[in-house]
């Protein structure tokens, strides 16, 4: 069930024994998760399996009752999303969290704007030129479809918005990029370009991506490995080549349930 690798340093992110209880509900019952450097790791599970709680734990939005998170061999304890960001974990939420009336460069740098050199910088002046150039370079490196750096993000297509949000995560993330259902609202062509963006983050930036998705074709198209959660426990981690869609669905729903129903 677990991966064969035994050297702990081989993983970019190691999650061990994470538990989280909300009142009587145990959302996570001791979950382990290993994410290798430069892999796209899909996280699957039915509603209530604990996916979103696990993502929130990694994003620092939820503090676990037990368990540990190691990044590059160092243990971390996140008490706020800021902690997770400082540790190099960036999250693309389903709502994208973009400012629609601002252009892409301001969105990429929101809250982390480059200051002008010298006194003006200390007075809070933003180096717009540096911001625009860095944003342009970064978007090009991801082969992004966002071309007009002066246009408001709100006027862009769903795919372009997604590309801006993903590019922001890739710009600041140094340990792990997490994406929560990034293709849920997209059409076929736009989904393909987001999947391409995910591959580029892996291949060009060498960053691991944790992809939360319901969409099995997406998972088979882009993931290197897959982990399935069910009822707060990990029930499967395997290279994508060693699983089938049926196998994944059985793992998500519980094979017994399927057999019982048929």
């Amino acid at each position: 069930m677990t991966t064969g690798a035994s050297d702990p340093g081989a993983y970019a992110v190691r999650v061990r024994g994470v538990r989280k209880r909300y009142g009587h509900v145990e959302a996570l019952r001791g979950v382990d998760l290993d994410i290798a450097p430069g892999e796209v790791h899909a996280l699957l599970g039915d509603n209530g399996a604990g996916k979103s709680t696990l993502v929130k734990v990694l994003a620092g939005a939820v503090t676990p009752d037990e368990g540990s998170i190691e990044i590059g061999g160092r243990r971390h304890r996140f008490t706020s999303p800021r902690d997770a960001q400082r540790a190099g974990i960036e999250t693309v939420y389903q709502d994208l969290a973009l400012a629609p009336t601002l252009p892409p460069d301001a969105n990429l740098f929101l809250g982390r704007e480059p200051a002008r050199p010298g006194l003006l910088g200390r007075l809070g002046f933003v180096d717009r030129k540096a911001m625009r150039e860095a944003a342009g370079t970064h978007l090009r490196s991801l082969n992004s479809k966002v071309q007009d750096l002066g246009a408001e993000v709100g006027s862009m297509s769903g795919g372009q918005k997604q590309a801006v949000a993903v590019a922001r995560a890739a710009m600041w993330g140094s340990a792990l990029i997490m994406m929560d259902e990034p293709t849920a609202a997209l059409g076929v062509a736009q989904t393909e370009s987001v999947l391409d963006l995910i591959r580029r983050i892996r291949d060009e930036k060498g960053l691991p991506v944790l992809l939360i998705s319901h969409n099995l074709p997406d998972v088979f198209s882009v993931a290197d490995r897959v982990t399935v959660l069910r009822l707060g426990r990990r029930v499967l981690t395997a290279p994508i080549g060693e699983v089938t869609a049926t196998g994944l669905i059985e793992a998500m729903t519980g094979a017994d349930t399927l057999r019982g129903a048929s």
Binding site: P81, R82, Q85, Y93, D95, L96, A97, L98, A99, P100, T101, L102, A106, L110, G111, R112, E113, A115, L123, G124, F125, V126, R128, G154
Partner: peptide, 24 residues
């Protein structure tokens, strides 16, 4: 128009939650 304070002002009106998550 020129400062971080101004940009954050726009960002808050555009999407308060996004501004909050960006650490503002």
């Amino acid at each position: 128009a020129k400062t971080r304070f101004g940009l954050h002002t726009y960002a808050m009106g555009a999407n308060l939650e996004a501004a909050r998550r960006a650490g503002i």
